[in-house]
Amino acid sequence: MNDMRIADRTVDANGIRIKASGVQVHYGDSHAIKDVSVDIPDKAVTAFIGPSGCGKSTFLRTLNRMNDTIPICRVQGNILLDGENIYDKRVDPVQLRAKVGMVFQKPNPFPKSIYDNVAYGPRIHGLTRNKAELDGIVESSLRKAALWNEVKDRLHAPGTGLSGGQQQRLCIARAVATSPEVLLMDEPCSALDPIATAQVEELIDELRSNFSVVIVTHSMQQAARVSQKTAFFHLGNLVEFGETSQIFTNPKDPRTESYITGRIG
């Protein structure tokens, strides 16, 4: 891992995939996201960084309406996916989530076999016509998540019996299997060793060629390595959003600079 290496940035020729403007999120009385506006580019990786509790996960969850499941959570503002408001009354969140996939902060495999975990998405969305196709998707997804070699001999063993890091990669494979157009990843590498991390980063880089990826991370190095855009959150505010190279080499806000150099966090 050559730290702080800043990946080649060839973005912005592509359009904007998700346009969030004036987003406010309340959990009951507590104001978790304060007037955040971000443009998430297509075919690029956007990193969300910021100290713990600053609202990265909360904001990420607003992007595929996972916050709908929290009764006390209220979301205001506009979030456009390809120009359509995802909070419009006519939007079915189920359909939205098939397009905008998510990997959660805590690994949450289904208490089913490894195979069934990965095959679940393709099955419910009817992505395959036969068993062979499904097997193919399961294998390629597990390969992408750098898990295939470890589990290929026990695909029918329970997914919950894997180690924490393996479970996290299983969840990545499960999310990838439905081929979402946007993939939201909440700290996908927090329980992974450097080798698996490198493999997942490779996957993210690969996904970038077709999809838009949003990744929450606590590792500055990771953000620098994989992302083209970086958003820095602090206490529910979006402090700074811009090219990753610019954020890491030449931050405009003093808070960003202190965070990156390790003074807040």
């Binding site: 996972m66 189920v94 998510m102 959660f104 949450n108 679940y120 419910i124 439905t178």
Partner: peptide, 18 residues
């Protein structure tokens, strides 16, 4: 049943019924 299981299913586009 842990809520994380529901999140997992909803997160890959399962309906509530599913």
């Amino acid at each position: 049943v842990p809520p994380s299981i529901r999140d997992a299913a909803l997160g890959i586009g399962a309906s509530k019924m599913q």
